[in-house]
Simulated assay, not measured.
Amino acid sequence: MIRRFGEAVRADRKYRVRHGVYAVLLLGDEVLITHQAEPEPEYQLPGGGIDPGESPLHALHREVYEETGWSIAQPKRLGAFRRFTYMPEYDRWAEKLCAIYLARPVRRLGPPSEPGHQALWVPARDAARILDNDGDRHFLATAISRLMR
């Protein structure tokens, strides 16, 4: 069973499944996160939806690049969670199935290409407080604890 974070499922809503991939990107004691300005301002782990016919790892590389401008290497799956939320950009309710990876940031290739996204390096201890999603916070803490072993 995949752990749920966030809002409870509402019986009066029809949810469509949306598969996504997200990355914890640590470099020293900092983590690379994104700030998405629209549709609601939100700090989050970089990542997003898997397009039809796309593999999860290809989607991870693409989404991280689009939202941060960085290339990554050595992704290792940390786990997954689900959350039920409204996606205003698609005008639908979604059950987001989020696979989380720990990856190594390799090189900044340019600015984020996805409109409304800003890449931010922040101390990992601060990122755990400012990420707007309980699932993102949980997996950041999981990644940090694994690296400290």
Rank of each mutant, 00 (worst) to 15 (best):
M1I: 09
R3K: 15
R4A: 14
F5T: 01
F5S: 00
A11T: 12
R13M: 11
R13L: 12
R13W: 09
R16I: 13
V17A: 13
G20F: 05
Y22H: 12
A23E: 03
A23T: 06
V24C: 01
V24K: 01
V24A: 02
V24W: 01
L25F: 05
L26D: 05
G28T: 02
E30V: 08
E30I: 04
V31I: 09
L32W: 02
I33A: 02
T34H: 09
A37S: 14
P39M: 05
P39S: 08
E40R: 14
P41T: 01
P41H: 07
E42L: 15
G49V: 10
E54V: 07
E54G: 08
S55A: 12
S55P: 06
L57C: 08
H58T: 14
A59E: 05
A59K: 03
E67Y: 01
T68I: 03
G69F: 07
S71V: 10
S71A: 14
I72G: 03
I72L: 10
K76N: 13
G79T: 04
G79E: 04
F81Y: 15
R83L: 13
Y86E: 04
M87Q: 14
P88Y: 08
D91T: 12
K96P: 02
C98N: 13
A99Y: 11
I100M: 03
I100E: 00
Y101S: 00
A103Q: 00
R104L: 14
R104Q: 15
R104M: 12
P105C: 08
P105D: 04
V106W: 05
V106C: 10
R108N: 10
L109K: 13
G110M: 05
G110C: 04
G110L: 05
P111Y: 08
S113H: 03
S113Q: 11
E114Q: 12
P115M: 06
P115V: 02
V122N: 00
P123G: 06
A124K: 06
R125V: 11
I130L: 15
D132R: 08
D132F: 04
N133I: 11
D136L: 06
D136I: 03
R137T: 05
H138R: 11
F139P: 01
L140V: 00
A141W: 04
L147A: 10
